[in-house]
């Protein structure tokens, strides 16, 4: 309770610090998300416009300028903005010497097949908090997320009467092909946090996604399929008899979830879990039962 109050106090105090707030340039979207969750408004964000369009949450204030692309951030602009810290993804490791001429650099691991992405993002968040002296706030934010996730678990259990469905999250790339989020992808981590099993077993892949022909989805006999919006050609696909005949479509085990970034930082798990939870609650309670699955 005491910590909670302290947190509120900190929150309330933040604007007053704005003048001497840390000047951090975020050259990856995970870092942007983490900074915003530490109540630090980044000095500049790589591909800020695309962040607002595709990542959406947490909201990036309108005034924050873009510092160019994530692959080739604009060095001269960074030099002009005079940040105190630059946070980069590993893909920019090779230009680190250049960036270090501008300001101290911290590199955080991004999405990779080699490690547990959820764990890595959590640690990156805590480490960033430490270097900005905001560990307390960081812990609170993580606890708040855990509490939120627990609530979603309960809601889902109540809705599905303890027989939770197996779920697979996909994104359509064309009317004939779809990307499935597989092991170690953020959507699958979010599913696990909600106590849900994947509806389709897939081998691990470099980016956690596997592109398959749409007909492969027909193999999902049990379980729910959620697709991440937007998909411009959905009218064309959803009207086709083959799509209508997919087991999960016929039995109403299919729903859309609002556009959510799937390569985000640790809090993207919460947004994904929310999106997944909301989509699942809209489905009838007997959808995609997977009775063999124990809870947790």
């Amino acid at each position: 309770m005491k910590r909670c109050l302290l947190g509120l106090l900190l929150l309330w105090l933040t604007p007053a610090w704005a003048s001497n707030a840390p000047r951090v340039a975020a050259l990856s979207w995970e870092a942007t998300e983490h900074l915003l969750m530490l109540d630090v408004t980044p000095l500049t964000v790589a591909d800020a416009g695309d962040y607002r369009a595709w990542v959406v949450r947490p909201t990036l204030p309108e005034g924050v300028p873009s510092s160019g692309s994530r692959l080739e951030p604009n060095l001269e602009l960074l030099a002009e903005l005079q940040p105190e810290l630059i946070v980069i993804p590993p893909v920019l490791e090779d230009i680190r010497p250049l960036l270090e001429r501008i300001a101290p650099v911290q590199v955080y691991q991004g999405f990779s097949q080699q490690h547990d992405n959820q764990q890595v993002q959590r640690e990156a968040f805590l480490d960033l908090a430490r270097s900005l002296g905001r560990e307390v706030l960081a812990e609170q934010r993580l606890q708040a997320m855990d509490a939120e996730l627990a609530q979603w678990r309960e809601r889902l259990q109540a809705h599905y009467a303890e027989h939770l469905p197996a779920v697979t999250v996909i994104r359509f790339s064309s009317p004939t092909a779809a990307l499935i989020n597989g092991p170690n992808s953020m959507p699958q981590h979010a599913l696990a946090l909600l106590g849900l099993q994947p509806a389709l077993d897939l081998p691990p892949s470099p980016w956690g996604i596997t592109q398959v022909p749409i007909t492969t989805l027909g193999r999902i006999e049990q379980g729910v399929v959620l697709h991440i919006e937007p998909f411009p050609q959905e009218a064309q696909l959803f009207a086709s008899p083959l799509w209508q005949a997919m087991p999960f479509v016929r039995e109403q085990r299919f729903a859309a979830m609002p556009s959510t970034w799937t390569y985000g930082g640790v809090f993207s798990l919460q947004y994904l879990a929310e999106a997944i939870g909301e989509a699942l609650l809209k489905l009838p309670s007997e959808s995609g039962k997977a009775p063999q699955q124990p809870l947790e």
Binding site: S173, S174, P175, T176, A177, I214, T215, P241, L242
Partner: peptide, 14 residues
């Protein structure tokens, strides 16, 4: 979304 078309895919759904 264009890339599947760009790579030339014959898959059909109807």
């Amino acid at each position: 979304g264009l890339f599947v078309w760009g790579a030339g895919d014959l898959a059909q759904i109807d």
